[in-house]
């Protein structure tokens, strides 16, 4: 995998040391973030590593067109998302979607509020949040179908603005919002199941007393 990079016929024949240093500073600082996002997108360490490597290779090739002073992080994520969409997404066809419009935007909070069991045990929101903390949130996020997951990753993990996400994904802001909100509805629905499971597991190993009174 790595050997590929060294043998590639590189277009930058007259690249300066200064370019190299600038590029290195720019990419090295975002490497962990890019890798985290790549992992949540591809759900696989090898694929994530390939995707990030592909990203900085493409970034290096187009570095000359990159204008100093523009949003470097958004530029890198745009390259990452394009590479992901081009080569890593298993199918370009959108999955048949079960519309979760009917569950409302704030499923978890509604569940906490209406749960008799949580109310009896004390502070419902507190209990639910501690169960989410114990749950496999990464796995839940990775179950959110595309293209909704990408929007959630960019907004909720990377904290890009709607406008930046629109630019990164090449879609209108209105589409960003609808993908993001649908992705969040999916995630909340999944987190409820995951949190419940984590709660049962904790009860079984006798740690019930750690739930705040």
């Amino acid at each position: 995998m790595g050997a590929l990079l060294v043998t590639l016929d590189h277009p930058h024949v007259t690249v300066s040391d200064e370019d190299r240093a600038r590029f290195e500073a720019l990419v090295a600082g975002h490497l962990d973030g890019l890798y985290s996002s790549a992992l949540r997108l591809t759900r696989n360490r090898t694929a994530a590593e390939d995707l990030v490597q592909d990203t900085f290779l493409k970034a290096w090739r187009s570095f000359r067109t990159f204008q100093a002073g523009t949003n470097a992080r958004a530029w890198l994520y745009k390259i990452l998302m394009n590479a992901y969409i081009d080569g890593y997404r298993r199918s370009s066809r959108l999955p048949e979607e079960v519309d979760q419009e009917d569950i409302g935007d704030f499923y978890l909070y509604a569940k906490a509020q209406e749960s008799e069991e949580y109310r009896k045990a004390g502070d419902p929101e507190e209990i639910l949040l501690s169960q989410v903390m114990d749950a496999d949130v990464k796995d839940a996020l990775e179950q959110v179908p595309e293209p909704f997951r990408a929007a959630v990753i960019l907004a909720d993990l990377e904290e890009f603005s709607y406008k930046e996400i629109a630019e990164i994904l090449g879609i209108p802001v209105g589409t960003v919002m609808s993908r993001l909100y649908r992705g969040r509805r999916h995630l909340q629905r999944l987190l409820w199941d995951y949190a419940r499971r984590a709660g049962y597991a904790r009860d079984e190993i006798g740690l019930r007393s750690q739930v705040p009174p």
């Binding site: 060294v6 290195e24 990419v27 490497l31 590593e49 290779l57 990464k138 909720d156 993990l157």
Partner: peptide
């Protein structure tokens, strides 16, 4: 909670090495 649980992956050393090789 979602951020704490889903972020903070460390890029593998192989990836940093690949970047160094590229440059």
């Amino acid at each position: 909670v979602i951020q704490v649980k889903c972020k903070g992956e460390q890029a593998p050393l192989a990836l940093r090495a690949a970047l160094d090789r590229l440059l």
